[in-house]
Write a protein that binds this DNA or RNA. Structure first.
Lengths: 331, 331
DNA sequence: GAATCTTATGTAACCGGTACCATTAAGAAT
DNA sequence: ATTCTTAATGGTACCGGTTACATAAGATTC
């Protein structure tokens, strides 16, 4: 059942049926109603592929994130999908799993599939992926990364501010509470680097890098105990990711370290479980839902107004105080 | 840049270029190489829309789940996406957010978009969604739901067995440890009903229904304390969802209830955080990754072998014992 | 050397729509 | 009555590929 069949039944040309489908005003009312009835009776649905090919518009947006099982991205994706669906767009989703080649392949694939626009959370800003995206003629929005490159709109969380908030919180404590300050962060990623920059702008901590997972956090604890004697010196830990922070916490508790008595912890992300772990985490909250919402609205705006000026969004973060590092009156 | 341009440059017809693109053997080697070079030089990529329209095949699979921010679905989706991408298929994703109308709209939309097949985790088995899916001519696989309906392949976790495992665990305890047994479950969903069936087949508990979220679990605690005096009678709680179980746990701990001393808890799902909450949860493990992998492989198989017999998969579950209900020597 | 078979390539219809331009008929203006 | 508008519809090229069929050139057979 296609547009020709409908036209034949109605005794009109396919052009007229096409006009009815497009709600064109240039169709006599009686004709329109007759055709609409035929369309309904045969529950005919126009073929999107043919339509897309002809209109050069697919109403689909490609989305690429590093990992989808991660609840942070889950919240973002969920919101993106809601917004896109509201506007009758379709979401085509891929994940890079932190592998640059997969990311690059996903981008190429989406371009081949003629998506109308893309939302990408890139692994790195200096990469083949970014270069091919820059050359592409469709609108692209970078998620979770900021760049001056005028080819892209960006939506990020203000990680610099987040890092500073964490530092400010520690600085607000009596100095007896922070005889030693240690920061734990992961691999080279803009978000993490900015968090560290925001923090070190205020405080110079000892830094551990390449600690990426819950297990990494857990395994780091023996080192912290022997190298930093954190059970003897009042220590503050800034950990740039709540998941890792929970691993560290678990490790510390297993060694009978008192949190926050001996060691204070401050994490980053405020995922759902940050408030539900053994010692609820003081942390920096991001707004993944809001990021997703803005990203989706912005890419649709870019698609529908191609000449519009690109924008860079930086969403504010918020300090959430919980038991792992409560407030105290200053000195 | 399209196939005609390439043909013009090469001085051949578009049919020949098409043959080169399709790796047809009926092209002279010298011609093939010449055309391939031209394709590379102009980095021409065939238009997928046109190709799909003509071939009647899109290499895309529609996936619909109830919610994507949920880590359980996150793990499934991640695996589905990996498998599909490996086989050069694209994933088009929607979520129903537990709203039947959204689910129905998502299905219609995907059918309109000519996906080659669909993986759907339906809200209910008796619904417009299922009926439209049954009528559709493309292969459909139901996730997380079992039905005899021969129109669908199914991939579920063996929830009946899971419920029984939970009951068996409780029955293995000295009876002094289980003076009272209470089950807490959510809204009417096949997975949850089966878990309860599996459990009640062995033990008849008092049942609380419609407890769906962490907060619901938290709020249930006062009732449990007053109506069931669970701090006075040795109680076993079977909670059909770990997230809810964590809410209940939090509520109990706030009321100084000793877990597992006064109250034992057994959850369901074994999400990442089940082992990291205040009192790590004894729970029933499902294999979302495996479900995703099988679902994706199966739908691809169905797409590529349309005549193949449909299959119903039921994945085994496993009891994970943790502090919230440890083993004890039998009587 | 004619007949036959292969192999490589071209031609054109087709997938299912959209949209520009042409045509027609009816009503308005002259 | 004739010409001009205008509204409704039809005809058709096009989007960018695939593919069945036709054809020409070269290889094989007798």
């Amino acid at each position: 059942m296609n547009i020709n069949d409908i036209a034949a039944i109605a005794g009109v040309s396919k052009a007229t049926v096409s006009r009815v489908l497009a709600d064109s005003p240039n169709v006599r009312d009686s004709t329109r109603e007759r055709i609409q009835k035929i369309i309904r009776d045969n529950n005919f649905e126009p073929n999107f592929l043919a339509r897309s090919l002809s209109r050069r518009k697919t109403f689909s947006v490609g989305v690429i994130v590093e990992e989808m099982a991660n609840p942070f991205f889950g919240s973002i994706l969920s919101m993106i999908e809601n917004v896109l669906n509201d506007k009758h767009y379709t979401m085509s989703l891929s994940s890079s799993n932190w592998v640059k080649e997969k990311e690059f392949a996903a981008v190429r694939n989406m371009i081949r599939n003629s998506v109308d626009g893309m939302i990408v959370s890139p692994i790195a800003l200096k990469s083949e992926t970014i270069s091919i995206l820059g050359k592409s003629s469709i609108p692209v929005l970078l998620l979770n990364n900021y760049t001056d490159n005028p080819a892209f709109s960006c939506v990020t969380s203000d990680n610099l501010q987040g890092g500073s908030l964490a530092a400010d919180h520690l600085l607000s404590l009596p100095s007896s509470e922070r005889q030693q300050i240690i920061a734990v962060t992961g691999f080279k990623h803009q978000t993490l680097e900015e968090r560290m920059d925001g923090f070190t702008r205020r405080i110079k901590p000892e830094v551990y890098e390449e600690i990426n997972t819950y297990e990494d956090g857990l395994n780091l604890v023996p080192t912290l105990l022997t190298r930093n004697s954190i059970n003897e010196i009042k220590t503050c830990l800034f950990i740039t990711n709540d998941n890792v922070a929970m691993g560290v916490q678990e490790g510390l508790l297993r060694h009978q370290v008192n949190i926050p008595g001996d060691v204070r912890m401050i994490g980053y992300d405020n995922i759902d479980f940050s408030g539900r772990c053994r010692v609820p985490l003081t942390t920096i909250e991001q707004s993944p839902g809001e990021m997703g919402r803005i990203a989706a609205m912005e890419i649709l705006d870019m698609i529908e107004n191609p000449e519009k000026e690109l924008r860079k969004f930086r969403l504010p973060t918020r300090l959430i105080i919980r038991e792992s590092s409560p407030v105290m009156p200053g000195e």
